[in-house]
Design a protein around this nucleic acid. Structure first.
Length: 414
RNA sequence: CGGGGCGUAGCUCAGUUUGGCUAGAGCGCUUCGUUCGGGACGAAGAGGCCGACGGUUCAAGUCCGUCCGCCCCGACCA
């Protein structure tokens, strides 16, 4: 992509309304724009990041045997009345009546719908176990949307559901998902903690949350550095209940939550199967969520400096930024174009071909945070060299420009 | 929904206390020139229903009322 033709628009000044680091940087680097409180447009750069995260999620889900499907965002309110969650959801669920007088809602989550789908397909124990997942927009009329995409009324979630014949099968799939989640968050460049959690309106008997330590987090956990116990903050709790060690508070962002649901939903909607023994039993379920859009904010919270975002390799909107400092110099342009064209075959490359001053290019490059950049300047070119800079630590190296392509390739693959 | 803050150019903000001629600055944008390794400089331009509606007044960005929107804290939240 050529910057001069792209829809990238950066902001020099800090938007006053954005308080959290990630929200500010998302606005400044042109990832998102607000439509109204709680609803955000993803601009091309932001969408690239979103797609990269989705890709990681898909790969890890597929790797553990989960199959992707897509459920409707529109749901009959009736399903929620049956599961007993209609009242529980309260005003968080967006409801309306359609022209035929049908009571509809915009899905805040999909346990009811997936259970309905599965119960109509599964008859026998031979069809189990199965794990299904989707990546989809959820709608929640939040009491208080905040911090940009951190808590929005419309957001993207990966939700997976496992279906087993018994608790033993559920335990196995639950464990499988825990491991997949760890891989996903690691690939996203996050350091995270897991904590036992309350099942809340989901119901079920066991649940685990994935928490990303960050100053703008909405939750607070207590961590014992002695025995590594981590739990949601409770009033009155001063010493570690396990080893009596000191507890530290840490604000965190919840990026994932997994639940052992058991038979809560299968019982009410009669999702049953015939076992090997000929007996009819309810399907044993688990559900597993990741806040995909929220992950972008969490990643930025943990990967930034005063100059801007520092994208982890796998989620970065581009692999490489090619920055010719003076586009009107023919040699500079020629070398930049050559590097750009040759590397674009294999990688996502952004070419800053704007006729702008170097200072502006450096500032923008730092802000949008592409992990690696190659700077082509007249002085170095005269010595036959171009400059490679890593965004992470601004580490700089010089390479001969006729071998630049292979050097960069090596760097990108390494 | 309770408490607090704020709405003036694309962005950041003056101006409102004490009403007064044609509403300002910086950045950004357009054109020209000089520049060119960390958000340059000069010149000339474009860009505003001062959130909306109603009231007070000879006169409202400024005072009063209602509404809308945005941000923060709280309650709430897979």
């Amino acid at each position: 992509m050529r910057w001069s033709k792209s829809f990238i628009s950066t902001l020099k000044e800090v938007p006053e309304k954005a308080e959290s680091v990630s929200h500010r940087l998302m606005l400044r680097s042109g990832l998102i724009r607000m439509l109204f409180s709680g609803a955000y447009s993803y601009l091309p750069l932001g969408l690239k990041v979103l797609r990269n995260i989705e890709q990681i999620v898909r790969e890890e889900m597929d790797a553990c045997g989960a199959q992707e499907l897509l459920l409707p965002g529109l749901q009959p309110q009736d399903l929620w009345v049956k599961s007993g969650r209609d009242e529980q959801m309260g005003q968080t669920m967006i409801r309306f009546v359609d022209r035929r007088g049908r009571k509809i809602c915009l899905g805040p989550t999909h346990e009811e719908v997936i259970t309905d789908v599965v119960k109509n397909q599964v008859r026998s124990y031979k069809q189990l176990p199965v794990i299904l997942y989707q990546i989809q927009t959820k709608y929640r009329d939040e009491l208080r949307p905040r911090f940009g995409v951190m808590r929005a009324c419309e957001f993207i979630m990966k939700d997976a559901y496992s279906f087993d014949i018994d608790d033993k099968g559920l335990d196995k799939n639950y464990q499988l998902m825990l491991e997949a989640y760890k891989k996903i968050f690691s690939r996203c460049g996050l350091s995270f903690l897991t904590t036992e959690a309350d099942c809340g309106v989901m119901g079920g008997k066991e649940s685990c949350e994935f928490m990303v330590p960050a100053s703008s987090g909405e939750d607070v956990i207590l961590h014992c550095s002695k025995c590594n116990l981590t739990k949601i903050k409770e009033e009155g709790l001063e010493k570690c209940p396990q080893c009596k060690g000191a507890l530290e508070e840490q604000t965190v962002i919840e990026v994932g939550h997994v639940f052992k649901l058991g038979t809560k939903y299968s019982k009410v909607s009669n999702a049953v199967f015939t076992g090997a023994d000929g007996k009819i039993k309810p399907i044993v379920m688990g559900c597993y969520g990741i806040g995909v859009s929220r992950l972008i904010a969490a990643i930025i919270e943990q990967n930034n400096d005063n100059d801007g975002i520092i994208w982890p390799k796998e989620v970065s909107p581009y692999d490489l930024l090619v920055a010719p400092l003076n586009i009107t110099d023919s040699k500079t342009k020629e070398v930049a174009e050559k590097i750009y064209k040759e590397l674009s075959i294999e990688f996502n490359v952004l070419l800053d071909d704007r006729d702008e001053r170097p200072g502006m290019k450096f500032k923008d490059a730092d802000l949008i945070g592409i992990p690696l950049r190659v700077i082509i300047g007249e002085k170095n070119l005269k010595a036959g060299k171009v400059e490679l800079v890593k965004r992470q630590n601004k580490e700089t190296s010089f390479v001969e420009y006729d071998t630049a392509v292979s050097c960069i390739k090596k760097e990108l693959l390494g």
